[in-house]
Design a binder for these strands. Sequence first.
RNA 1: GCCCCCGUAGCUCAGUGGAUAGAGCACGCGCCUCCUAAGCGCGGUGUCGCAGGUUCGACUCCUGCCGGGGGCGCCA
Length: 559
Amino acid sequence: MASLDPPPPSAPAPATGADPLAGLRLALAEAAAELHGAPATVELRLDRPKRPEFGDFSSNAPLLLAAGLDEQPRAVAERLGEALGRRLGPDLDRHEVAGPGFVNLFLSDRFWRSALSAVAEAGRNFGSGVAGTDAERMLVEFVSANPTGPLTVAAARHAAYGDSLCRILAFAGHAVEREYYVNDAGGQIRRFGESLAARARGQAPPEDGYHGAYVGELAARIAGAAKLDPDELAARGIELMLETVRATLERFRVHFDRFFSERSLHSGGAIERALELLSDGEHVYASEGATWLRTSVLGDDKDRVLRRSSGELTYFAADVAYHADKLSRGPDRVIDVLGADHHGHVARMQAAWQALGGAPDGLELLIMQLVNLTEGGRRVAMSKREGEFVTLDELIDDIGLDAARWFLLQRSHDTTLDLDLALAREQTQENPVYYVQYAHARIAAILRRAGEERLGAAARAELAAGGAPLHASERALVRSLLEFPAEIVTSAVRRAPHRLTAYALELAQGFSAFYRDCRVVGAEEEGGDEAFRIALSRSVQATLARCLDLLGVEAPESM
RNA sequence: GCCCCCGUAGCUCAGUGGAUAGAGCACGCGCCUCCUAAGCGCGGUGUCGCAGGUUCGACUCCUGCCGGGGGCGCCA
């Protein structure tokens, strides 16, 4: 059952002006307070039942209030229903007490008309700013794939997820910065340079180097490569590789505000400064010739090395300095989207963050599970060093940009994703993404058919004033629309873009049912309300377009 | 051994305490004198991995177990 609850106090609250359900929620809260004699402390739910006989909306409030009132739940439901009836007046058709103590609400056309009117008025902004006064300054790091090769499908999932998450957070009202951490230092960069050097001289890369064909192509693009040493080659190679990576990301509709270089932390002395900062707090100690960070007292299972006995700084030391930098920029929240292979990193980074003086919940480390690519049931292997992988560019060329984004976003980030290329490719006729796009395009066609004059009349019409009785499909479609703000809240708070794919599909299905049952242009001929139906179609179109935009998928005017 | 994720329909998966657990795909049948048939309607399957516990109520929360995937470097 879909929940339409106001979020808990810690979460962003819907901006009441933007949410047509606010009046309903307020009535429920007031009615409950009336019974209780004081505002209810329990969380009152306003649910949208799947079964029509359980009403348009339903609340379990009586079950929750019964204990405090020392009364039977059904008796409480009876009184709550009456109190609600007095408050909602003509917006409520009737209420019923059902089951163990639910109160089910059946709303009148008047309610649906004024609700749609509010949605139509919000227009393109419907559902925005739901974070309200809980809006935060957020710094989100994602992808951060090593610049030693092209972006793979694993990176593609990170890119789609991180980008959509940022779009949703921003739409909800947060100030979001997007950042890509470039691992352009350390042992793998040395091996990358050596591999380039070998290819430039026409030799095979070292055993532990990079063997992909792109390494040779890269070497060929560097002027005088054969005469350069591995360090210079690595630097030039990374530069070129990053250009490619950026171009691929932009093609995938993923934009970063900043690419942050690990190397700059070394050369700029930021790591040394971070280590000093931590030494002052007595978090750092020397042992066995190495320098350690005492992460074990902050939740990690062992302490971690910052500087090796060889004198070299570890990757972890650089990451600590990077997070010190993030912290110093003063965001309310830092989010790192990490691969499943980095989960061992979580505890030590959290510990380091707190050692640096960060608030425990100021750093959020999200772990992204793997993508398995299959091709007609056969697993496609992915390894950069072996050079055997499917790149993001190849994926886009293969199944299409919109399908790629949709498929990668369809599942929760913390579950392994199986993507069958053969299926994604062949499915194009029945693909959910095209279904949603089709609904959008179909509405565009209807609105074109309606023409300027009718659209203008609909925009000026007083929808709430009443008119022809509404069809069940019209009411159901308005109800789906009304769920959108809560859906944005949930997607944002739970960092769950995949919810919007499900919502978009549901809204598109609701429109198809409406389209089947109700003629829009010329509605009066069948006893319908043309202005209402045009406004409804426009609102659904705008909301579908918004969903698709948040998912990074195109919303076509025709197909 | 320890840690993380997962186990729901034939397949891929939604569903973080509410009523008879859903979608897409796949399969079958039917539907274009009507705003896009990339569409619509009808047809069915579930020991929600197993066992306990908490609760008026558990797919959902807790404990243990079983199964699958991933991770546990002075690599990055």
